[in-house]
């Protein structure tokens, strides 16, 4: 009897604007921090968010609940649209390299990452799921998922063999699944 995201998408597919407003209120606060983390600029993140939900409005009928949750559907699209935005920005301006540098700065072991994690714990905040991965695994997943690097680019950047990078990605994802499943 409870309304689910899948119910909302079915109503959106039928042109229900109220359902769309509710769907936005449920999922925008979840995908917005992800988009912002990838594109860095709040104005860009707002643009990406608007296009993402516009696309959801238009393509809600293609959502298939058998293939995954509405949240996974939205998060996957949010990540991919945000990466597209960073790439097109970078093409327009060859000097625009901030996302990569920031992503590197955010990996475990760097001062900024450690400060942020300690600050979070001081405030009694719960560490995010990725922060609970072993450093080397978290690093490769963050470089791929947030900075949009391919496995070859990650290997070059970290000066590690490609095979090591592949293994870390796989182990990191396995660990991530355990972490999120163990959460209450």
């Amino acid at each position: 009897m409870a309304t689910s995201g899948a119910d909302l998408l079915r109503r959106i597919a039928a042109g229900d604007r109220e359902a769309f407003a509710v769907f936005y209120d449920w999922y925008a606060p979840v995908v917005f921090p992800l988009i912002l983390r990838i594109v860095r600029e709040r104005a860009d993140a707002s643009d990406v968010l608007q296009e993402l939900f516009w696309e959801a409005w238009q393509s809600a009928g293609r959502y298939d609940p058998a293939r995954g949750s509405p949240e996974a559907w939205m998060v996957m699209r949010a990540r991919s649209r945000a990466i597209d935005r960073v790439r097109s920005t970078r093409r327009r301006s060859s000097t625009f390299v901030a996302p990569l540098d920031d992503a590197a700065a955010a990996v475990p072991g760097s001062e900024r990452a450690r400060d942020a994690a300690e600050l979070a714990e001081d405030r009694g905040m719960v560490r995010s799921a990725l922060e609970r991965l072993p450093g080397p695994q978290r690093e490769v997943i963050e470089l791929a998922y947030y900075a949009g690097l391919t496995q070859t680019e990650i290997a070059e950047r970290l000066k590690q063999p490609l095979g090591t990078v592949k293994t870390r990605i796989r182990l990191g994802l396995e660990r991530l699944r355990e972490v999120v499943q163990a959460s209450p």
């Binding site: 925008a28 912002l36 996957m76």
Partner: peptide
């Protein structure tokens, strides 16, 4: 994909600027 979605949700939610919803 579900694990990555759960990871996205493990970050504190952020309310986006209200203009986005209004524009949509």
């Amino acid at each position: 994909a579900e694990a990555l979605a759960a990871a996205a949700r493990s970050v504190p939610p952020m309310i986006p600027p209200s203009q986005v919803k209004e524009a949509l």
